[in-house]
Simulated scan of single mutants.
Amino acid sequence: MRAHPSLALIANAGAGRVRASTVERIARVLARRFAVTVEIGRSPEEIYALARRSAGRADLVVAFGGDGTASRVAAAVAGSGSSFSVLPGGSTNHVVQLLGLPADPIRAAHALTGPVRYRRLDVGRISADRVLLFLGGVGIDAEIVADASPGVKRFFAWRSYLIPGLRHLGDGPWSFTIEIDGARHEVTARTVLVANGSFLVHPYFRLGPDIDPSDGSLDVLALTPGSLAGWVEVFTWAALGRLWRARSVRRWRGQQVSITPCGRAPVEVDGDPYPDLSALSVTIEPAALTAVVPAFSRGVGEERANRYG
């Protein structure tokens, strides 16, 4: 096991579970193994700038916040030579689950000071300062993300999306042009998802049988229910953990993805709404990120990608 002599902790002061006292405790735990510097950001732009300054200097750059924080830090670290990890400070912490880290930030910090291994992850590049690390989409999923109350998310985690989900169930559909590796598809859908991670909202609700953030590809899923009956079918298959089997779900895979709605549609990336984007274009960067993860645990879907048929 190779030691990391230097570690930069990038904390998001606006994340639901990030407190000054918790940051101090985490820094003390990490200092048992690393030379730790702590940076506190208060906006996505500041978090990216802090991570960019640390990338290539610190051996390990750790994001402490939610999935949006992890995504911004990963955008700065990818390809820099620094390794990456994340501590759970948000409401759903999908990236933490994907990497097999504990759900408690202090326990997760302890895990990084113990035996670790290195996992190469793909990232979906959107722009110089933005990547898709886990999941993005255009349509009602972005409306749900924007509508979920931060206070409710803090206490109810993924369940906080249920009420906004019901509120926006009838929105759309939108007409989309989806281009995947040069092939063009015209689709009418309620939402179109781009997945690097393997599940939606909760690990049980898997998006596909073989989605893996290390496979060099992005998965695209269009949810096309045209009626309440169509939604019932989607929810039934989702409840069975096999969303991809629903007739109202279309799925593709590729390295370059562009999703363009006809007219204005909301966009989200890794749980953060992006009102400045009117379309979503993502290019996979295979194995661009080296993640430090606990040696003796596995992330959601890891080494089980072919378990489901």
Rank of each mutant, 00 (worst) to 15 (best):
E46G: 12
I10E: 06
E24D: 11
I26P: 05
V18M: 09
G56V: 05
F34A: 08
A13I: 03
A20P: 08
R25E: 15
A49D: 15
R52M: 13
F34P: 03
L9M: 07
I26Y: 04
L7E: 00
A55G: 09
F64R: 02
S71P: 08
A27M: 02
V38Y: 05
T37N: 06
T22D: 14
G16V: 04
R42N: 14
G68W: 02
G65R: 00
R32T: 15
V62W: 01
R52P: 01
F64W: 01
R33N: 07
S43F: 07
E24H: 08
V61F: 15
G41E: 00
A11H: 01
L9D: 01
E24W: 09
E39V: 11
R25A: 13
L30W: 09
A49M: 11
R72T: 10
I10L: 14
G14F: 09
V62N: 00
A70N: 10
S71E: 10
Y48T: 07
G56E: 02
A27I: 11
L60H: 11
G66Q: 04
G68H: 03
E46R: 13
V29T: 11
G41D: 00
E24R: 15
A27N: 02
D67N: 06
A20M: 11
G66C: 05
A13R: 07
A8N: 09
P44S: 09
A51E: 13
L30G: 07
T37S: 12
L30M: 06
T69M: 03
L50T: 03
A55I: 04
A55V: 02
V29M: 08
D59V: 03
A49V: 09
I26H: 05
L9I: 15
A49L: 11
D67V: 10
R42C: 13
R19T: 13
E39C: 13
L30T: 04
A8S: 12
V61I: 14
G16S: 14
G68M: 05
A51M: 13
A13E: 04
A51I: 15
A15T: 07
R33T: 13
I26L: 10
R25C: 06
L60R: 10
R53I: 05
E39F: 10
A51R: 13
E24Y: 08
A31S: 14
L60A: 10
L7F: 15
R33Q: 12
A11K: 07
L30S: 03
A27E: 08
L9H: 05
R32G: 08
I40D: 00
R32N: 15
A13D: 03
G41T: 01
A51D: 09
T69E: 00
S6N: 12
V61P: 08
R32C: 12
